[in-house]
Amino acid sequence: MAEGPRGHLVFACGGSLYAVPAERASEVVNLPVLTRVPGAAPHLLGVFAHRGEVLPVIDLARLIGKPVDEIFKRVVLVRVGKGAMAFTATKVIGVAPIEGAPPRLGESGALAFMHGPARVPAGECAAIEPEGLLEYLSRGR
């Protein structure tokens, strides 16, 4: 993959901005009715069926331990090799380029798969590494 600015879909979840690589973000949909999953972690809000596929909805704010009260309006669908998932969003900002590779936000847990702070026109955001995060989530607990 060639180095240089990469296009990211930037969205807000609570007061924080997140970004996923545009090529991984397959779709943005309104938050549908969710089906709860037995024994699921708190950040896993539930699942919904989309185009014949069951997609888990992950609350990023809960995932990093900073839950918000805002209503999620949209979900951003992300697809990687192993599967797909959806991230909650209070607002989808749009596609924006992110220069270089910002450092990881943490050494372990979910933050190990987030880079930042990354500069976008709307502010500073955390750039999510979807493959790694899915790997992390599928490990379960």
Binding site: A40, L44, V47, A49, E53, V54, P56, A84, G140
Partner: peptide, 24 residues
């Protein structure tokens, strides 16, 4: 989904859809 493969000690085996409603 991949993110849920180990959920509930692997008790979740899939989902069935009945009349538009998803059941784990």
């Amino acid at each position: 989904p991949a993110a849920l493969v180990n959920t509930a000690h692997g008790a979740l085996t899939g989902f069935v859809e009945l009349s538009g409603t998803l059941w784990p």
